[in-house]
Amino acid sequence: MTLLLVALGGATGASLRFLTDRWVQARHDTGFPWGTLVVNAVGSLVLGFLAGAALFGASVPVLQTALGIGLCGALTTFSTFGYESVRLLTGGQRLFGLLNVVGSVLVGLGSGVLGVVLAASIWH
């Protein structure tokens, strides 16, 4: 059952990642990887919320497995973030590369904290 939950969440997350990235990038005519930033921020928010729910006693293992491991694992992408950062830094867009590295880390951490805070406002 666990494998099925991870697989279903992963298939959903990968599909959402692809569609979201294409949708966001189509609206921004820059070399900056906005789509990757958005999916990583959303995934960090969801994972922070799930972690916060567990922290405050509202743990739902089925949802944590399907959404936390499956959906967020496939939705978010450290490898693409790394690749895009290196591509920008070595491709003459150093400012975008630096902004991507710093911005992604700050947005990811902020989104995760916001998720925990939202969970705390519900269950604490």
Score class of each variant (00 low, 15 high):
Leu89Glu: 08
Phe96Gly: 11
Val86His: 04
Gly73Trp: 11
Trp34Lys: 03
Thr77Tyr: 00
Gly91Ala: 00
Leu55Met: 14
Arg94Asp: 06
Gly92His: 07
Thr76Gln: 02
Leu67Tyr: 09
Phe96Leu: 11
Val86Glu: 07
Val86Thr: 01
Phe96Lys: 12
Gly68Glu: 07
Gly68Val: 05
Leu63Trp: 15
Gly92Arg: 05
Phe81Ala: 09
Ala54Lys: 14
Gly52Asn: 08
Gly92Lys: 08
Tyr83Trp: 13
Phe32Trp: 01
Leu55Asn: 13
Arg94Met: 10
Ala54Val: 06
Ala74Lys: 09
Pro33Lys: 00
Cys72Leu: 11
Ser44Arg: 07
Pro61Lys: 10
Tyr83His: 11
Ser44Gly: 08
Asn100Trp: 01
Thr77Val: 12
Gln64Leu: 00
Gly68Phe: 06
Ala74Gly: 03
Leu75Asp: 02
Trp34Gly: 03
Phe32Met: 03
Ser59Ile: 02
Thr80Phe: 06
Ser85Glu: 09
Ala51Pro: 03
Val39Tyr: 04
Arg94Ser: 10
Phe49Arg: 02
Phe81Pro: 12
Gly68Arg: 13
Leu89Ala: 10
Ala54Ile: 01
Leu98Cys: 07
Phe78Asn: 05
Leu88Glu: 02
Ala54Asn: 12
Gln64Lys: 09
Leu67Cys: 10
Leu89Phe: 03
Val46Glu: 11
Leu88Gly: 05
Gln93Phe: 03
Ser79Ile: 01
Asn40His: 07
Leu88Phe: 02
Gly43Pro: 05
Thr90Asn: 09
Leu37Tyr: 05
Leu98Tyr: 08
Gly68Cys: 06
Ala53Gly: 13
Leu71Gln: 09
Pro61Trp: 03
Gln64Asn: 14
Thr80His: 03
Phe96Asp: 15
Leu88His: 06
Thr90His: 07
Phe49Tyr: 15
Leu63Pro: 00
Ala54Pro: 00
Pro61Ser: 14
Ala66Gly: 00
Gly70Ser: 08
Leu98Glu: 05
Leu63Thr: 00
Leu89Met: 03
Ala54Arg: 14
Gly48Ser: 07
Leu55Phe: 14
Gly52Pro: 00
Gly97Lys: 10
Ser59His: 13
Phe32Gln: 04
Leu67Lys: 07
Gly82Asp: 04
Phe49Gly: 08
Thr77Ser: 07
Ser79Gln: 09
Gln93Trp: 00
Leu63Phe: 14
Val86Gly: 04
Val62Thr: 14
